[in-house]
């Protein structure tokens, strides 16, 4: 059965605080930061995009997996900020990590959850008897999330990504995926039309009928299928559009703060969209010990959630990254709003 044999995270160095964004728009930064439970967000540099971050995360994952790029039979890149509307990010990643040409590759989009949809696809391909030659598959969630200036999303829309490699050799698997379950409906909570630069959202509508309904639907459906309750898990991680929603949804599902704390990364780097839950899960895997059970639930607007029940193996200790996700967060440099506007190409006369 397919499991995770390697994972990698990339978070850009630049940070802008919520208070700095609020200063420009004459808003109460302290109150907004407290209300969202987000202190600052990661901002991709001028020469970074969802593709460069995907490559960096992929390289770390390949290194931890202990395989060569050319052994990957599938690469999927989930993002809502692919650099091209037509031309895959996945083929650039494949070339950059030496996986070309014998592989299948595609870009995916499902707002913030395309990366976890890719994980499910890789699991299925790795487990499937056809194609027989396909041993490993990698899914990446990466975004340079767009937030319209002076929109509520601007305080949290951040940059970052994570890559997961699936394989089925027991001696390589650091975490088994015991089961997966998804919950999907047509819910117009957040969208970006073709050629539109920034997404639009339905304000308060993005809470109850969108995020909470789908995350809870997927989490409950998943736990019922594996006959487990919240108390049976060592850790849980949920998609984190801000630092408040995942804490609220955890309480609604009877998870404690101790169970979700290690995977709660948005307060420190903002919402990395497709990278959000995948980075939180990586942080949990950084700390988890053999036999720990993890519930991971993503959320993508539009809307749907993918849930995974994960159990770590004895290989988790042997395969630890030299630098943990939280240690990576400390490698940062603060920028002001002007620098942020330049980095994210918000100045139209450039």
């Amino acid at each position: 059965m397919a499991g995770i044999i390697g994972y990698g995270v990339y978070v850009p160095k630049n940070r802008i605080t919520v208070e700095e964004i609020a200063r420009v728009w004459k808003k109460d930064g302290k109150a907004i930061s407290k209300g969202l439970n987000v202190k600052e967000k990661a901002v991709a540099a001028y020469d970074e995009d969802a593709c460069t971050m995907a490559v960096e995360a992929a390289r770390r994952a390949v290194s931890q997996a202990g395989i060569e790029g050319k052994q990957l039979g599938a690469i999927y890149v989930g993002s809502e900020s692919h650099p091209y509307a037509v031309k895959p990010t996945a083929s650039i990643v494949a070339d950059a990590i030496g996986a070309s040409p014998e592989l299948t590759a595609a870009d995916l989009e499902f707002a913030c959850k395309a990366g976890t949809a890719g994980m499910q696809m890789c699991m299925a391909l790795v487990d499937s008897p056809v194609p027989e030659w396909l041993e490993y598959g990698m899914s990446i969630g990466t975004d340079t999330a767009q937030g319209r200036p002076n929109d509520a999303l601007e305080f949290t829309a951040a940059s970052g990504g994570a890559a997961y490699i699936m394989g089925k050799k027991k001696e390589e698997i650091l975490a088994n995926i015991l089961d997966t379950y998804s919950y999907t409906t047509d819910t117009p909570d957040f969208w970006r039309r073709q050629h539109a630069e920034f997404p639009r959202h339905a304000g308060r509508f993005t809470g109850e009928p969108a995020y909470f309904k789908h995350v809870i639907g997927a989490a409950k459906g998943m736990m019922e299928r594996v006959k487990m309750q919240a108390k049976d898990f060592d850790y849980a991680v949920f998609h984190q559009p801000n630092g408040k929603f995942p804490i609220k949804v955890a309480k609604m599902l009877d998870f404690s703060m101790e169970q979700i704390e290690q995977g709660l990364t948005t307060p420190f780097i903002g919402n990395t969209y497709s990278g959000s839950m995948m980075i939180g899960l990586a942080s949990i895997l950084d700390k988890a010990k053999k036999g720990d059970k993890i519930l991971a639930v993503s959320y993508g607007s539009g809307a749907g959630s993918d849930a995974f029940v994960i159990e770590t193996t004895e290989n988790i200790e042997k395969k630890r990254h030299k630098k943990s996700v939280f240690e990576m967060f400390e490698e940062k440099e603060y920028i002001d709003y002007a620098e942020y506007a330049k980095c994210r190409k918000k100045l139209k006369s450039m």
């Binding site: 020469d47 970074e48 995009d49 460069t52 960096e56 650099p83 091209y84 650039i92 950059a96």
Partner: peptide, 25 residues
């Protein structure tokens, strides 16, 4: 070595990616 954009001057044109380097902390 890090992977970065080298050139992205035409919004409708292809993006050139490649290597840059950063100091190892």
């Amino acid at each position: 070595k890090v992977f970065r954009k080298i050139s992205d001057i035409d919004p409708e044109g292809p993006i050139a990616y490649g290597y840059k380097f950063k100091v190892v902390d």
